[in-house]
Nucleic acid binder design. Structure first.
Lengths: 220, 220
DNA sequence: TTTTGTGAACTAGTTCACAGCT
DNA sequence: AGCTGTGAACTAGTTCACAAAA
């Protein structure tokens, strides 16, 4: 999502002590399109001042509010394997307004242990209980693909509102629950595709090289 | 990329012993659009047989070839922290035609050690040497954001052709090098956004509820 | 008949360029 | 003057529906 990108940019500006910025300034600095920035922001309110630009602290506040980050979002990680543990200890989440409330697993040898930074591993059977008690809203699924569908169902039943799935499986979620997949293998395959340089076959009627035509944007 | 998704679907069909499938069959089973499947596939050749459908093994071979997976793709992971180690041991990569050729770090206490599944940690100073020697083509960047730009430069100099960046930083790569970002925080923020339910403000002239109009597709 | 491959219709997303505000 | 907010132009991506092939 682009609003997230803008928030990251605004964070950097704030670090640099810049307190006012124009859409064009943002676009130049971070290689974006100024009209798109303006449109994206204007869709949620009139945050800018014509002739001046955007106030960085104000813009940051608005962005955090739009992204629902003015209150701490609590996260449960289901699957306390290497990936789950690595994510539980990832410092970027904490600093960004997220809190890893717990790791969950069904492996009795893991239950009760803690990750390096102190996140406790709970029995996955206690997921619902803790989701309610701690008001956890987001679940990260880091179990093997075979277990993922069941885990997803469990998460939904526990009352989680959004799921981030790392398992290479196509999961289903009911309308009220937002599901997002982070399929690492697909990312690697995409890169492989571009390296391979396999290009779509040329349409028969296409001209080998089409000289691009300048176009007019005159408003009548 | 969708071709990756199709490959995953075809894998599942093969596991189920299905050896022929129509675009409509694929679409129904995996919740896709049949016309899109046909168009995507047809862009790379005529793999189907009219009136019959697609042969699963043949389609799989074609997809792997298009994705450049008929030869093993070797991967270097720069940054032997928790995330790097977790990715090095991720079994999904190996089974998918990728090989993790090594972890790289500048921490002397890590150099020479091995991950749980036996991936060696090398001095990052040896990146170029090993990239050439082992014909590594893809780099995964799992270092802190502050180190990411330098690491990216190093990867490019070493001759890597594609980079998968996990650091929350906007990196730059020259035209010949493909860069893809996997920003976990952005993913979480996107989920948070949907939970928050912040909706774009309604355009003034919009009608509160627009009854959708059925449309004709008659070709004249 | 069945199902692909594909032009055309449609929809969504991006960029331009300027009216209007400060 | 400078910059936002935004209609309109443009581009990309998706879906439809049918001719052509098996």
């Amino acid at each position: 999502m682009r609003l997230s990108v803008y928030l990251r940019c605004v964070d950097l500006l704030e670090t640099d002590g810049i307190c006012r910025v124009s859409s064009e300034g943002l676009a130049r600095r971070f290689d974006l399109n100024s009209a798109q920035i303006r449109k994206d922001l204007a869709a949620f309110g009139e945050f800018g001042v014509r002739g001046v630009g955007y106030q960085v602290p104000e813009l940051k506040r608005h962005l955090r509010s739009i992204l629902g980050l003015d209150e701490t979002r609590r996260v449960a990680i289901v699957g306390a394997g290497h990936l789950g543990q690595a994510l539980a200890d990832y410092r970027g989440f904490r600093s960004g307004g997220f809190e890893i409330s717990g790791l969950f697993d069904n492996d009795r040898s893991k239950i009760g242990t803690r990750s390096r930074t102190g996140v406790t591993v709970y029995d996955v059977a206690r997921l619902k209980e803790l989701v309610i008690q701690r008001e956890i809203q987001i679940g990260m699924i880091t179990v093997p693909a075979s277990a993922a569908p069941d885990v997803a169902r469990l998460c939904v039943e526990a009352g989680l509102r959004a799921l981030l799935n790392f398992a290479p499986a196509r999961l289903q979620a009911p309308p009220g629950v937002r599901l997002k997949n982070v399929d690492l293998k697909i990312n690697l395959e995409t890169l492989s595709f571009y390296i391979a340089g396999s290009s779509p076959r040329r349409r028969r009627e296409e001209w080998p090289q089409t000289p691009s035509q300048p176009r007019s944007h005159r408003r009548t």
